[in-house]
Design a protein around this nucleic acid. Structure first.
Lengths: 188, 188
DNA sequence: CGCCTATTTCAGAAATTCCTGAAAAGACGG
DNA sequence: CCGTCTTTTCAGGAATTTCTGAAATAGGCG
C-alpha cells in the first residue's frame, strides 16, 4: 500500500471496521479510498493503492455497487471503468440507511408477520407469539417514522435533527405540546 | 433442536440473521430463545433446546451480557444461573442503539477527529481531509440528535416517532414552523 | 473476423471465525 | 477441606469467509 499517511490511516481504519459493518476488509478499504479520492479511480489504480489482487477489487466494486455506495463513471477517451462515491454525505447516509434496513430489518419483519399469522398450539406458543407481536409493533413504529423522514430534503432533515433536541425537551411537558400542535394544525 | 414450531422458526431466523447483525448463529439463537421464553432459562435448558455444546452456550451468554441484551436472574433454591432478556422492547431498542453506536460509530468518530487534527502535506491530503470533515460533521449531527433522543421516556419517544411524520410535513414550510417554535419558546 | 484490452468468474488456498470436548476454576454445603 | 455441581477457559478441529491466480468472457476497433 502506497498512499499519503492521512489517506492510508483512513483507509486502514475502514478496513478494520469492515467486519463490524458487515463488509470485508477489502470492500471497506476500496470505499474509503474512493471516498477521499479527488477523482474517479479505475480498478488498476485501486489495485496499486491497496496492494490486493485485481479480482478482489473487481468483486469489491461489485459489492459496493450493489449497496449503491459506489458508481461507475466513464471518462472520455478511456475504455476502462472508473468509480466514485457520491459527493453528498447526506445522500450517502440515506443510501446506507436504506440498504441496511433492507438487509437487516426487512427479512425479520417479514418472518414476524408470517409467524403472527399462525395459530398457536400451546401456551408456550401463545406467549412466544405475544412477544413477537411486541417486537413487530416496535419495528413497525420505527420503520414508519423512518419512511417519513427519509423523504425529507437534506435541508429539512438537518433542521429536523437540530430541532430534535428542542422538540424532545418540550415533550417532557407533553400535554401542553400536543395541545400546541393540535391548535396549530387547526389554525393552518 | 426440540422446540414448538413457532418458536423454532423464530430461533432459526435469528440464527440466520446473526451474521448480518454482527453476531454468530448461536448467539442469535440464544437471544431469540430467551426473548420468547416465558421464564428465565439456565444454560442446560438452552443446550437442550438448541442442540449446541455447553461451552458454546457459555460463551454466547457472555457475549449477550456484554451487549446488555441478556441478564442473569437467580431463582430461589437453585444454584444454577438463569437468564432472561429485559421485557420492555423499547428498552431493548435503546440498548441495541447504544451498543451499536459504541462499536460501529464511536471508533470511527475518534479516528476522524485525530486525522482532522493533522496538517495536510499535499493537495491530495488536503482534499482527503475536507472529505473527512464532511463525514465527521454528518456523524456529529446525527449522534447529537441521538444523544438527545435516547434520554426520552418511552412514552415520549413513541410520541416523537408518531409525531415525526407530522413535523416532517410542517418542515416543508420551514420558515413558518421555525417562527412557530420560536414564538412558543418565548411565550413559555 | 482477429486482436487487444478490460472485466468477471471460479476453484482452491489462505485466513478467520465458530464450535467442541476436555480440563481447570469456582462455588457452596456438609 | 472434601465432594459435588456448575461455569469458564482454551487448544485445536470444523466451518465459513476472504482472497488469489488462472482461465473465461466481454467489448470494442481496425
Amino acid at each position: 500500500m502506497n498512499l499519503p499517511p492521512l489517506v492510508q490511516a483512513f483507509v486502514l481504519h475502514f478496513g478494520e471496521m469492515g467486519s463490524r459493518w458487515g463488509i470485508n476488509r477489502t470492500v471497506g478499504q476500496i470505499y474509503a479510498l474512493l471516498y477521499v479520492s479527488p477523482d474517479p479511480l479505475n480498478a488498476e489504480q485501486i489495485v496499486d493503492a491497496l496492494g490486493v489482487s485485481r479480482s478482489n477489487v473487481s468483486m469489491g466494486l461489485k459489492e459496493l455497487q450493489a449497496w449503491n455506495l459506489v458508481l461507475p463513471k466513464h471518462l472520455p477517451n478511456d475504455r476502462r471503468d472508473h468509480f466514485t462515491t457520491p459527493d453528498d454525505v447526506w445522500q450517502i447516509l440515506r443510501t446506507l440507511a436504506e440498504e441496511r434496513k433492507k438487509r437487516e430489518v426487512d427479512p425479520t419483519l417479514s418472518v414476524l408477520r408470517e409467524l403472527l399469522m399462525q395459530t398457536p398450539a400451546s401456551d408456550e406458543e401463545r406467549h412466544a407469539q405475544a412477544r413477537m407481536a411486541e417486537m413487530h409493533g416496535l419495528i413497525e413504529r420505527v420503520t414508519t417514522w423512518y419512511d417519513d423522514v427519509k423523504r425529507l430534503e437534506t435541508e429539512n432533515l438537518v433542521t429536523l435533527l437540530a430541532l430534535g433536541a428542542k422538540v424532545t425537551r418540550l415533550l417532557e411537558a407533553k400535554d401542553k405540546v400536543i395541545g400546541l400542535v393540535r391548535g396549530r394544525k387547526e389554525a393552518s
